[in-house]
Write a protein that binds this DNA or RNA. Structure first.
Length: 634
RNA sequence: GCUGGUGUGGCUCAGGGGCAGAGCAGCGCACUCGUAAUGCGCAGGUCGUGGGUUCGAUUCCCACCACCAGCUCCA
């Protein structure tokens, strides 16, 4: 007999060799029905896995990551089986579960078309209906290679050959289909109740553009049809929130063919942009930052000195002026260096926090451009902090607090990643270690959770990245804090210490919004275009019912303007329902309907974007209410 | 940059080798109206750009450009 400890801490005894599935059945039929896999002493296993020793067992359902993964992974195998039936010459690459579903990469002569997807879906339904048992088996390395070679699965052969020596090489069989796979999987194909294939895309073998491009099919799957429908509805909702669509509809910004990746901001978008910038300036002033502005074009020589020429040239634009070579800045730091170097600095002046809203240009590949999220020119809300070594930790903490304060205002969730030394970088290992540890210590002293992002630092130093979560659950890097020992060295920055000697300052590069453009895109999707009062380009729309109400409407408008509110009045000769509809579609937070009653009583009939008609109130009361909402950043 | 798809009035989209269509928006006129679309009329397009095939191309072919979905890369 063996002792099995369950999640709730209870210990049951079973005979040796009992399967996970049988344990689930012994607990309840309901649990056995929803169990998809089991976690045995921390390792996720198939339901058919035999328990041979005392262990901790955690039964996994679709609500657990491990359960979901098994479910989606099996879904991808079903898809691969269907593809092999329809296109026997297709070679299998890899087919993992991902957060939102699964994909499988195939090497095929002809790319899949949307009609092909339909055929594949139909075949998958057959496979699910046929309800094959899924069996695991293990082969020794040489047999495994031979097995896959015979099938002509060259990618699988390559994968097996690269597996570590001691790795068990497992396969899963369902009907006529066998795939190399670590598992775990569901016990049969019939368990996948609801799935949909979503898209086809090219994807490089092993993610390297040097390799052949394969055809990837994305799909998603759920135990219940209702869950699938819910997911698809969420995708639709995400489409509605797309900032590119909303940006045009709400006249915030636009991008033209004449300037791919170079966005134009329209009057309403500028209102939003300027509010963000005003707030940014105010908060930075409070925290001891000074602001500068450096040129967009600077002599190429500067970029040789900064290391950008060696490490960032591919992303830069160049130009010539009077036969001399110049570069368009992709970053603000070198300009900041020149400003620091103008004068000798005393240790008493440090830390120096120098901010710059700098417009940078970067040559991004045409295929990655995406509305305001990925552009070729954007405004970084940059700052460079020059400091002594013992000021590092406090300065980093200060920036972390600043970023947290900003994101909280907008109600964003975010997570933090620490990026370490990349391959093509400057400096010594020791410098990198000191810098990386400084960032780590600052975060740990604040009790922050973070993920390590190996090899993803800037070429001049490690960084802390802040990733905001948008409406679709995509994450976008916004804020970043980068610690840099290289630029001060390269530009021979110094300060005079208490000892009268020259010392080398350390530098932080940091942004809060990251890029104003991207931040506006994220805000737009986050609020689905319905910006809170303090950010709305138009806060109040005055809607007179008839032309005889225009005079009072004008007075209302004037009063709101006097109180610093952003207001528009619809004087057109249209029915009130029409005016409301339009204001509502423009997502104006408050509409004021002005008719006989209001004109007589000095009131306004308030309609909120969110709650509809909320009744009449005195004009003064309304003004106070909105001014207060604006002030509180609601 | 790579793979696939798309490109027709400001927007959303239909059409298709032989005079280019609709709805919304715009403009004009009428209606004076209380919480998401009043009615009638008018105007608006070299069918992304450049080549080619053809008696004739917006339609078929080629190249380029832009956009979309991914890949790779990133604020």
């Amino acid at each position: 007999m063996i002792k099995v400890t369950l999640k709730d801490g209870s210990i049951n005894e079973y005979k040796k060799g009992i399967t996970i599935k049988e344990v689930a059945e012994s607990i309840s039929a309901g649990l056995a029905r929803v169990a998809l896999a089991g976690e045995v002493d921390g390792v996720v296993r198939d339901l058919g896995y035999k328990l041979e020793n005392d262990c901790k067992l955690n039964l996994l359902t679709f609500d657990d990551e491990g359960g979901r993964e098994a479910f989606r992974h099996t879904s991808s195998h079903i898809m691969a089986q269907a593809v092999k039936r329809l296109y026997p010459e297709a070679k299998l690459a890899i087919g993992p579960a991902i957060d939102t579903g699964f994909y499988y990469d195939f090497d095929v002569e002809k790319p899949f078309s949307p009609e092909d997807l339909e055929k594949i879906e139909n075949e998958m339904n057959k496979i699910i209906k046929e309800n094959y048992a899924i069996e695991r088996f293990v082969l020794p390395r040489d047999e495994a290679i031979k097995f896959m070679e015979e099938k002509g699965e060259t990618y699988k052969v390559e994968l097996i050959k690269e597996l570590p020596e001691d790795e068990e090489i497992s396969f899963y069989r369902q009907g006529e289909f066998v795939d190399l796979c670590a598992g775990p999987h569901l016990s049969s194909t019939g368990k996948v109740k609801a799935f949909k294939l979503l898209s086809v895309a090219g994807a490089y073998w092993r993610g390297s553009e040097k390799n052949k491009m394969l055809q990837r099919i994305y799909g998603t799957s759920f135990p219940k049809k209702s869950q699938l429908d819910e997911y698809l509805a969420r995708l639709e909702e995400a489409k509605k929130r797309d900032h590119r669509k909303l940006g045009r509809e709400l006249d915030l910004f636009d991008i033209f063919e004449e300037g791919p990746g170079f966005p134009f901001f329209l009057p309403k978008g500028m209102v939003l942009r300027n509010i963000l910038i005003d707030y940014w300036r105010q908060e930075h002033k409070k925290r001891g930052y000074q602001e500068i502005s450096t040129p967009i074009i600077l002599n190429e020589d500067l970029w040789h000195r900064s290391g950008h020429w060696d490490h960032y040239k591919e992303n830069m634009y160049f130009t010539t002026i009077d036969d001399a070579n110049y570069a368009i800045k992709p970053m603000n730091c070198p300009g900041g260096m020149l400003v620091y170097k103008r004068k000798l600095h005393s240790y008493r002046e440090l830390p120096q926090r120098i901010a710059e809203l700098g417009l940078v240009h970067r040559h991004e590949l045409s295929g990655v451009l995406h509305g305001l999220m990925r552009v070729r020119c954007f405004t970084q809300d940059d700052a460079h902090i020059f400091m002594t070594t013992d000021q590092i930790k406090d300065e980093i903490k200060g920036v972390i607090e600043l970023i947290d304060d900003f994101y909280k205002i907008f109600g964003f969730k975010y997570h933090v990643e620490l990026s370490t030394r990349p391959e093509n970088s400057m400096g010594t290992d020791e410098q990198w270690e000191v810098a990386t540890n400084a960032l780590r210590e600052a975060m740990e002293s604040m009790g922050m959770k973070y993920k390590i992002n190996e090899g993803d630092g800037a070429f001049y130093g490690p960084k802390i990245d802040f990733h905001l979560e948008d409406s679709i659950g995509r994450t976008w890097q916004c804020g970043t804090i980068q610690l840099d020992f290289q630029m001060p060295e390269r530009f021979d920055l110094t300060y005079i210490g208490p000892d009268g000697e020259r010392h080398r300052p350390v530098m932080i590069h940091r942004v809060v919004f990251g890029s104003i453009e991207r931040f506006i895109a994220i805000l737009t999707e986050h609020y689905a275009g319905a910006f809170p009062v303090w950010l709305s380009p138009v806060q109040v729309k005055v809607l007179p019912i008839l032309d005889k109400h225009h005079e009072y409407a004008k007075r209302v408008e004037q009063k709101l303007i006097e109180n610093g509110l952003r207001v528009e009045t619809d004087y057109r000769n249209e029915k009130i329902g029409y005016k409301i509809r339009e204001a509502q579609l423009q997502k104006v937070p408050y509409m004021l309907v002005i008719g006989d009653k209001e004109t007589e009583n000095g009131t306004v009939a308030v309609r909120s974007r969110k709650d509809g008609d909320i009744g009449s109130m005195l004009l003064d009361d309304f003004v106070n209410k909105i001014v207060e909402e604006d002030r509180q950043k609601k």
